Simulated assay, not measured.
Amino acid sequence: MTVLEGFAGAGGLSEGARMIGLAPTLGFEVNADACRTARAAGHPRVQADVRALDPARLGGTEGWISGPPCPTYAASGKRSGRADYGAVLAAVEHLADTQRPRCFLDGIGAEVTDPRTALVLETLDLALSLPRLRWLVAEQVPAVAGIWREMAAELAAMHRWDACTVLTLRADDFGAATRRTRVFLIATRDGAPDLTGLPYRNRWDCQRFGPGPTDRPPHPLTPFPATSMAAALGWPTGVRVNTRGNRQTSGGNEFSADRPALSLTGNGARTWYRTDHGPTAGRLTDRDAGRLQTFPPDYPWHGSRSARFQRIADAVPPVMAAAVLGAATRRPWQHAVWNRLTDLYGHTRPDVPHTRTCTDRPDAPQLDLFTLPMPKEETAA
C-alpha cells in the first residue's frame, strides 16, 4: 500500500482517487457507518483512530491524504476551534521542531476547548513521520486556510518539501450541483503539482527554492458546465427548496433549485424538501444528496437517515477530489471528471467522445488488508 487516507469517511476522496486510477487507497476511520459505506463501495477501510497509527510500520507510504473533522471550525458548527486558533498555529511550529511529536500532540489535545480542534495537527505529524512520503493532500473548511499555510511554510522551509500550495475550491466550478467550498493543502517533494486547468477561488504558494510565499489572483475560468440542483435531480424549472421548515432567518428559509444547491450539512440537508411536493413527499433522499455531491446514484450509504446525511455532508465531492489528487500526483484528471459529469448529469465534453475507463468501476481490485500491518482497531466513539 502506497497511499494512506486519514479521517477517510465514507469515500469522497477515495472516489476521486479511483476516478484517476490512484486507487485503491487504504483509509482509517473511526465511524462504523462510514466504514461500512466505504467498504460496500469497494474502498478499503480500517476502523481505527488515526492517532493509533505507527509510522514505523507504514514506512512504504508515498502518498498521505488527510481530511480531519471540521465541526469546530465550520460556520455551521459551534466554532469552538476559532477560540483555539492561535494555539493550533503555535502548535504547528512546535510540532515541526519537536523530536517527540506524539507526546506533544497528546498535550495540545488536552489544552484546546474541543479535542477535535487539534486533529488537524495529525496531518503534519504523519507528513513529518513517514520517511518515503512524496506528496500530501489535506482538506478542510475555509476557516482552516491559515493553519494549512503555516504547515506549508514549515514543510517548505524546514523539511525539504519542494512546493506547497493552499487552494480554495468550490464544487460547482467542477460541474457539481452544489456550491460546497473547501480549502486544500497540496505538498510535493518532487517538483511542483500540475495545477493546469484547475479553477481556484484563492491560491497561495510557497517553495523550497525561489521567492517567498506568494498570493495569486483567482483563476475563475472553468472548463466545466454549471449544473443546477433541478437539472441534477431531474426536476422541472421553477422548483423551490425549503431548508428550515417554518423557521425564518435573515437569509430566508428557501432557495431556488434552478442553480447549484447550497453546501450540504448533516443536520440541514436531511430536512430539505421541495415546496411543490410538501415536507413529506418532497423530502430530499440520501441518493439525491449524494448525487448533488457527484457520488454515483447507487452509492451504498449505511446507517440511519441522520447518519447517512452526515456522511454525505462530510464528504469531499468526488469530482473535486479527483482534480486535486490528479494535480498533486500529476495524473490526468479532466477526462475522469467529465466521465462522472456525463454519467450523473448527462453533460457532454465538447468535441471529445465519452468513454468509460476501468477506474470508473466500483468493483476495481482491492488489496488484501490482512496482508498489511495494521494498528490496533478501535470502535467508533
Results as ranks from 00 to 15, higher is better:
Ala10Tyr: 05
Leu13Val: 14
Ala17Trp: 00
Arg18Thr: 02
Gly21Phe: 00
Thr25Ala: 01
Gly27Asn: 02
Glu29His: 06
Pro44Ser: 07
Arg51Gln: 15
Arg57Gln: 15
Arg57Ser: 14
Trp64Arg: 08
Pro69Trp: 05
Cys70Leu: 15
Tyr73Phe: 08
Arg79Thr: 08
Asp84Gln: 09
Tyr85Met: 14
Val88Ala: 12
Val92Cys: 11
Asp97His: 13
Gln99Asn: 13
Pro101Lys: 01
Arg102Lys: 08
Cys103Asn: 15
Leu105Trp: 06
Gly107Ile: 11
Gly109Lys: 11
Val112Phe: 13
Pro115Lys: 10
Ala118His: 06
Val120Thr: 06
Leu121Met: 07
Leu130Pro: 02
Trp135Val: 05
Ala138Cys: 09
Ala138Trp: 01
Ala143Glu: 05
Gly146Trp: 03
Glu154Tyr: 08
Glu154Cys: 13
Ala156Asp: 02
Ala163Pro: 01
Ala163Phe: 03
Leu169Arg: 00
Asp172Arg: 07
Phe174Val: 00
Gly175Leu: 01
Gly175Phe: 01
Arg179Gly: 14
Arg179Tyr: 12
Arg179Ile: 15
Arg179Asn: 14
Arg180Trp: 10
Gly191His: 04
Pro193Lys: 02
Cys206Gln: 06
Pro213Leu: 08
Asp215Glu: 14
Arg216Gln: 15
Pro217Ala: 10
Pro220Ser: 03
Thr222Asn: 07
Thr222Ile: 07
Phe224Ala: 05
Ser228Cys: 06
Ser228Arg: 03
Ala230Val: 04
Trp235Ile: 04
Arg244Lys: 14
Gly245Asn: 09
Arg247Ile: 11
Gln248Trp: 13
Gly251Cys: 11
Leu262Asp: 07
Gly266Ile: 10
Thr271Arg: 09
Tyr273Asp: 02
Arg274Met: 10
Asp286Gly: 08
Ala289Val: 07
Pro297Leu: 09
Tyr299Glu: 04
Pro300Ile: 04
Ala313Gln: 02
Ala315Phe: 01
Ala327Gln: 01
Thr329Asn: 02
Thr329Gln: 02
Trp338Phe: 12
Leu341Gly: 02
Gly346Trp: 08
Thr348Gly: 11
Val352Phe: 05
Thr357Val: 10
Cys358Trp: 15
Asp360Asn: 11
Asp360Arg: 05
Gln366Met: 15
Gln366Asn: 12
Met374Phe: 13
Lys376Ile: 15
Thr379Ile: 15
Ala380Val: 14
